[in-house]
Design a protein around this nucleic acid. Structure first.
Lengths: 242, 242
DNA sequence: CTGGAGTAATGGTCTGACCGTTGCTTCGTC
DNA sequence: GACGAAGCAACGGTCAGACCATTACTCCAG
């Protein structure tokens, strides 16, 4: 006798996978509109609840967005937007209670590459943006210490954007949320620390401006290395991430 | 008069956010069980459809999994599992048609760090696993060329696991799916290329075994650099990702 | 030709029902 | 008292049908 391998595949999962395939296959290219929910009910023979739950899954995966309700509204196929991967990374980091050390190592892995790529791929607008962030941080220095953490992060995100590597950029912005939480704990060290950060940013900016990829990379490595050393001196190992 | 800022927040989104907060706040710790759907209906005043759609979103985000159906079944809070972030990354890479070059740069960013961490954090089991993968690749060499791409990737994934950095490891395994697709296109170069890969793997393994983080990192950098050079010589720039 | 009313189809929501599954409960038997 | 089998209640999954506000097209009056 068969071992009862029924395993009841759930309707909404089957539907979700089917729609995913149809989208990936190109049947519904980016920007096109999916059939309405009632139409999908007719096509698939499932109930509207199941169809809706399947669509909800695809929406939360970032493959779909819901257009305006009302006549001719519907589900639009889209490229996975940045904020989807960003939220997933945030949930992952917070849910798994990733240690600050692991987070820092991840930064040390990707940010030097981002700086290197930024030196090569940056546009003039990118450069102007990084310069704005650099100045904003410098202006905040002695008087608005509480802003420094955020402005610092903004600067790093601007560099990531200038790399024009969508994947690395998404990863960087993804972990920046967790970084923000984690950094909020420590108030930004001494004046010396701040000045060191400002000087490092200025030097990296110079390298990116000149298109010197090697220097940009090396200086970013050093910048993050210094940051790590600072932390090692001042803070105890355990840093809860909210 | 108010500018009609109605903006109809959707019920299931509100519910999803509410449940997300309650989970994150620790009201429902990992492994605990959420109230049943009918109970949530009573608590929130929304309909069961809305509750179910909210739960579906949270499930697709990896925060929940559905226990067995039947009495005392329900939604279990869990840590975001690896496969969730992996699928999101895969959707992102394929949906955005990330170029092979960008993918390679991402590898070059994170893999040297993975090797470095592996040299420090590896357990004996990790080392044994990497060694197994190394040998498997070497055995496949002249006769089973078609397997080499996959075995090669397995080796890299084993190194990532040995790093014991959950985040970087998840990112590596996440992009490995796309890497698999992309690598399937090119058949694995010449004998010379294969031998070069084998030699590089062996040397990185040695460094990890000895706990020499600097060497592991540098050799991984060189290994990937050589791979990039190979590609630049042989293949035209445009490499479609499925 | 233009503009405003009408209209039809959309996604969102709700209600109420039924199903198979599952694990506790209870009761009968030894 | 111990043990096993039948009963039962609650769960998630699914379905049908309804109503709503919203929306963009349609069409006719001016």
């Amino acid at each position: 006798m068969a071992p009862k391998a029924k395993q009841h595949p759930k309707n909404y999962e089957v539907l979700a996978q089917e729609l995913r395939s149809r989208i990936m296959s190109g049947e519904f290219p980016e920007g096109s509109q999916l059939p309405g929910e009632r139409e999908l009910v007719l096509q698939t023979g499932r109930s509207r609840s199941s169809v809706r739950e399947a669509l909800r899954v695809l929406e939360s995966e970032g493959l779909l967005s819901k257009k305006t309700v009302g006549r001719y509204g519907g589900s639009i196929v889209q490229r996975t937007p940045d904020h989807t991967i960003r939220r997933q990374l945030d949930l992952f980091i917070r849910g798994r209670s990733i240690s600050f050390e692991d987070l820092l190592h991840t930064r040390q892995a990707i940010e030097p590459m981002l700086a290197q790529l930024a030196a090569v791929n940056r546009t003039d607008e990118d450069l102007a943006e990084i310069r704005r962030r650099t100045i904003a941080l410098e202006m905040a220095f002695p008087d608005q210490r509480h802003l420094i953490t955020l402005l610092n992060l903004d600067w790093h995100i601007a560099v990531a954007a200038a790399s024009h590597n969508e994947l690395l950029n998404a990863l960087m912005t993804g972990i920046s949320g967790a970084l923000k939480h984690a950094s909020a704990i420590e108030d930004y060290g001494t004046d010396e620390t701040c000045l060191g950060v400002i000087r490092a940013h200025r030097k990296i900016l110079d390298a990116i401006e000149k298109g010197d990829a090697t220097a940009a990379r090396r200086r970013m490595e050093r910048h993050l290395g210094a940051y790590e050393k600072e932390l090692a001196e001042f803070s105890p190992p355990q840093l809860a991430l909210s």
